[in-house]
Amino acid sequence: MQVAAAKETIFKINDLNLWYDDFHALKDVNLEALNNEIFAIIGPSGCGKSTFIKTLNLMINMEPGVRMTGEINYKEKNLLDSRVDLVDLRRKVGMIFQKGNPFPQSIYDNIVYGPKIHGIKKKSELDEIVETTLKDVALWDEVKDRLKTSAMGLSGGQQQRLCIARALATKPDVVLMDEPTSALDPISTLKIEELMTELKKKYCIVIVTHNMQQASRISDKTAFFLHGRVVETAETGKIFSNPEDKRTEDYISGRFG
């Protein structure tokens, strides 16, 4: 616990409730995510885990009829309180989606898309961003000779890593990942997992995953969601070896979900 105390708190969620019109999707969620850690969220389909991760960069506001109460503190600033600058927030809280979604442009243009719009114009600076972010996601050696070719020509795993690079290019503090490997083959999945353990040295990572082995392999803390509630949250080692709640145990041992 001493080690954890030294790490900066990035997200602190207090009594978060969320409704889609009349449907109560998240109920009294309390969580804390620290810097340089991987925070995994597991749970069966429809438990609210994807909804939850989308609240962290307020992408949830794109859905119609959403209402929220409680607090989502990002670095001690409550996202639900004052009028938050969405542009600024999403630049700092990057997000990776289920399926790689590169723009139908060149590899280079995909990465510089964010930085360019955020005001970086110098070619040398952009070149450097492309090189460092691609190296960060271990894609540089594979694509350095074809940066100007279309990103649509990459494999699924490469596309996903490109998307991670694209998110890193805006220099975020946090990377949210919504089932980032669910559409990938085992080898690509392994690469992304290795990448995540590498990335946590610099970032706070929150990942939603369907795959319990994945959560146990890579994450530091795990939260188990069920019917919109956090049933249990603890060190990953503890939750998988010695869960406190009966429902957690049932889910982890594959008795439902």
């Binding site: 542009v87 999403r90 630049r91 990057g94 997000m95 979604n101 139908p104 719009i117």
Partner: peptide
């Protein structure tokens, strides 16, 4: 235009107008 394309842009902290201009309209 696929929703993923729009999400990708918005999630990078791009404003709505820029997303329309650089992602939605070209597509």
């Amino acid at each position: 235009v696929p929703k993923e394309q729009k999400e990708a842009s918005l999630a990078l902290g791009i404003t709505r107008w820029h997303t329309i201009k650089t992602v939605l309209l070209p597509y």
